[in-house]
Nucleic acid binder design. Sequence first.
DNA 1: CATCTGATGTGCT
DNA 2: GCACATCAGATGA
Length: 253
Amino acid sequence: MPTKRRRVQATDQEETVEKKVSRILNENDSVSSKYFQSKKMRLLSDFYNKPCIELAKSFLGQVLVRRLPDGTELRGRIVETESYLGGEDEASHSRGGKRTERNVAMFMKPGTIYVYQIYGMYFCMNVSSQGDGAAVLLRSLEPMEGLDTMRVFRNVKRNVQKPLKDKELCNGPSKLCQAFAIEKSFDRHDLTDDQNTWLEAGPEILEEDIVSCPRIGISNAGDWTRKPLRFYIKDNEFVSVRDKAAETSSVNA
DNA sequence: CATCTGATGTGCT
DNA sequence: GCACATCAGATGA
């Protein structure tokens, strides 16, 4: 018992400074205590310089940060991604090595943001990886900081006043762009060197907690339609679509 | 829960 | 012309 008490006291002392900083930072916006805090250190080039599938898995658990013009910072933990390999990947915008004005960011250095518009009214955010025309689509975030602001952005974009639950803020590629106010102008920005957008390190996600399954919204891509190139954190409630079949089969893997 | 449908406009053939 | 890495609301079980 004395050992336990001493450890608790030491922990409390260690957290004092961090708690103070956190309290000051949080005075301007809401931070829910049920979400963990990131280490607030920007991820640099080495992190992004990996093959596409490896990067898509590495993104899980990392924290996307968006700094708004008024200084407000939004944070969300990445919980779902998809790989688009380029070249032979028939579902990729860069299939067959096709390079256009729209998708040129996919061919830029790892860590470059690729934003494209879809269905006339939505945006999707990708990050280029190692490999020609390869990129990772960010599909879902677990909101951590700035939830009130995210809710406002989402309601403004949707032109609806229905209150959104936390899990509805960022559980889809275009929802997270709305919540973080990420638009076409972010295309070709560099996550390792951008003042408004970057990634911070979060806790490592174990391989056994990653579910691999087919990508969402892909059809007519031949064999590539079913390849397991979507990755998400198992049992995370902020994932957009759970694949029950993949979750049960991975138990035996 | 699963499945369906309308909205909406740009990029590319 | 048409396909489209989506979303929200509606409907049925």
